[in-house]
Deep mutational scan, measured.
Amino acid sequence: LKKGSQVEALFSYEATQPEDLEFQEGDIILVLSKVNEEWLEGECKGKVGIFPKVFVEDC
């Protein structure tokens, strides 16, 4: 996944840490960066945070 690409949430993700990005199933997320193999940083609904890659798929 490249910076600036968009992904769609397959499942809702509930934030458990302040840096987490919370979203609902079906939301479109703009990928800002790759944190590591399992986590991405993205923006959704004006909020920025990190989230697990397994919760999303390429649009």
Rank of each mutant, 00 (worst) to 15 (best):
L1F: 15
L1G: 12
L1Y: 15
L1T: 03
K2I: 03
K2A: 13
K2G: 08
K2P: 13
K2Y: 11
K2N: 13
K3W: 02
K3T: 11
G4Y: 01
G4F: 08
G4C: 07
S5M: 14
S5I: 09
S5E: 13
S5L: 09
S5Q: 08
V7S: 09
E8N: 15
E8L: 15
A9Q: 00
A9W: 07
A9I: 05
L10P: 05
L10C: 06
L10D: 00
S12E: 00
S12D: 11
S12R: 08
Y13V: 08
Y13H: 11
E14K: 14
E14P: 12
E14T: 14
E14L: 09
A15W: 06
A15V: 01
A15Q: 00
T16D: 07
T16H: 03
Q17A: 14
Q17H: 11
P18D: 14
P18V: 03
L21S: 05
L21R: 03
L21T: 07
L21M: 05
E22T: 09
E22G: 09
E22A: 13
E22C: 03
E22R: 07
E22D: 04
F23Q: 13
F23P: 01
F23M: 11
E25H: 15
E25M: 09
G26F: 11
D27L: 09
D27Q: 10
D27S: 03
D27H: 06
I28H: 13
I28Y: 05
I29Q: 01
I29H: 04
I29A: 05
I29K: 08
L30D: 14
L30R: 15
L30I: 13
L30P: 13
V31M: 05
V31I: 14
V31A: 03
V31L: 13
V31R: 04
L32Q: 11
L32G: 11
S33F: 09
S33L: 04
S33G: 14
S33Q: 11
K34T: 15
V35N: 05
V35Y: 03
V35P: 10
V35D: 04
N36F: 06
N36Y: 02
N36P: 00
N36T: 01
E38K: 03
E38W: 07
E38P: 05
L40N: 00
L40M: 12
L40R: 10
E41Q: 14
E41C: 13
E41V: 12
E41T: 05
E41K: 14
E41N: 03
G42V: 02
G42H: 04
G42F: 05
C44T: 06
C44R: 08
C44N: 00
C44E: 01
K45L: 04
K45W: 11
K45A: 02
G46Q: 01
G46H: 01
G46A: 08
G46N: 14
K47F: 09
K47M: 00
K47N: 09
V48G: 07
V48M: 00
V48C: 07
G49S: 05
I50T: 05
I50P: 13
I50K: 13
F51P: 00
P52H: 11
P52E: 03
K53Q: 01
K53V: 05
K53T: 02
V54M: 14
V54G: 10
V54T: 14
F55E: 01
F55H: 09
F55Y: 13
V56S: 08
V56K: 03
V56G: 02
E57V: 10
E57R: 15
E57G: 12
D58H: 13
D58R: 13
D58T: 13
C59V: 15
C59E: 15
C59D: 05
C59P: 13
